[in-house]
Design a binder for these strands. Structure first.
Lengths: 240, 240
DNA sequence: AGTAATAATGACCGACTGGTCAGTACTATA
DNA sequence: TATAGTACTGACCAGTCGGTCATTATTACT
């Protein structure tokens, strides 16, 4: 069997642009090779879509030939799945650690999760996976199921914990948990997607202030009605 | 030149009726045919994606052959653009009329715009266009630009008006307009997208209560800090 | 050096599909 | 019936791309 095991983790910064410069690498580590292919595939999938990406191009970007690619992946779909597996595991583990260590207010936890997502996923090439899955999940039910179980459910669990803490402590008013999760995630996904879809739904401001405003509206929206303390610091009034 | 001009819209248009008094339609109306192709294409694009859709299938679904399709559209991309043009014009006009007629509170206007979007776009096959454009805009810059100018900008203008009214009347606190628009739209787009992407980012509840909760959080978030009147009616506490 | 094992290659194949076009079928007029 | 006009067809072409495999290059070992 060729590539039964998932290839080693792909870190966001591991973008091996065609290594034209320098001497030819004599002997490459086998695992590194798989990740290089995955990274190259991620970049091209993000740009061209799945069907629009030629495996020849993926191989070329990874500095190899198509035949070599097929030494590591059984099919184009397997490559797709590897990209997801490879990319999201580490990022989610980071977030889970963040949750476990946190002891401040729920609002602060939410803020940390949102900005942590931005740093470790949204800002990185991994963000393209969202667009990919949205665009292609219908054509690859197995990949979709994998993503659903191993990425979405895991991510939702994080947010659920944060919301539950806030509600339990009285910091947040009582809202439907799953609905609130949906509404927290949607702007994040759109931000990720917008990075790979022309300027279509792109926020008109910087991603950071977009996220800041999302948190602002969100935390105001979640705040208990009898809590009149402002969430946002005074002085950030855009109408001033 | 075959069909340099965009094909006629779904709306009834002037027909080049011959002076003959024949009441019964002789053959199939040419314009109807174009819309049939567009509708078939929309359905298949939504399901399979753009690259994944075969023009033979589009033609078959419209009850014609591929050759006939090429009598109405110059290329697959032209068909794509026609789908967008054809579908969104009427829906946006409806929303613009709604805005012009409205005279109640800004919160109510926002609610009407959101639910109007759901009824006329989100709920209909037109919702697939969002997913399509997200997935394919990179590959078709011309289509993307058209969509940007004729759909996105038009839609944003609607929301901008509503927000400006609310801020001017003191109903909403002072927020960055463009950012707020982004954050109003994002959950709508995700809802549309989710309908055509497995159950990935699909709301866990019904679309209606998802939208209701979006408005709830949103209007709470927009409310002036010194306004303590609850936005949501009492009694809908999900923790009760 | 000789030899075996493995990594890597890229020419090739077959299936697929966007796009074409010579021809058919049908209608309306003369 | 003859003629003209047009909606329509489907076989076909040409280019593309996922996937294969015989061959070559490189390393490891003796």
């Amino acid at each position: 069997m060729k590539s039964a095991d998932p290839p080693s983790a792909l870190l966001p910064e591991a973008l091996p642009v065609p290594a034209s410069a320098g001497a030819a690498p004599r002997r490459r580590r086998k695992e590194a090779r798989a990740s290089e292919f995955a990274a190259a595939a991620l970049a091209l999938f993000a740009e061209k879509g799945f069907s629009g990406t030629r495996l020849d191009d993926v191989a070329a970007r990874a500095g190899a030939s198509k035949g070599t690619l097929y030494l590591y992946f059984d099919s184009k779909e397997a490559l797709f799945q590897a990209v997801i597996e490879d990319g999201m595991g580490a990022a989610l583990a980071t977030a889970e650690a963040r949750l476990a260590e946190h002891h401040g207010s729920a609002a602060d936890l939410l803020r940390q999760l949102v900005f942590g997502w931005w740093e470790n996923i949204g800002q990185t090439p991994l963000a393209a996976i969202s667009k990919l899955v949205i665009a292609e999940s219908r054509n690859f039910p197995e990949v979709a199921r994998f993503y659903q179980q191993n990425v979405i459910e895991r991510g939702r669990r994080l947010l659920r914990s944060a919301l539950q803490r806030g509600i339990a402590s009285g910091e947040f008013r009582c809202v439907d948990l799953e609905g609130a999760i949906d509404l927290i995630v949607a702007p994040l996904l759109m931000l990720a997607v917008s990075r790979f879809s022309f300027s279509l739904c792109a926020p008109q401001t910087s991603p950071e202030s977009y996220l800041e405003m999302h948190l602002d509206l969100l935390l105001n929206g979640l705040r208990r009605a009898d809590d009149v303390s402002p969430v946002a610091a005074p002085g950030d009034d855009p109408c001033r």
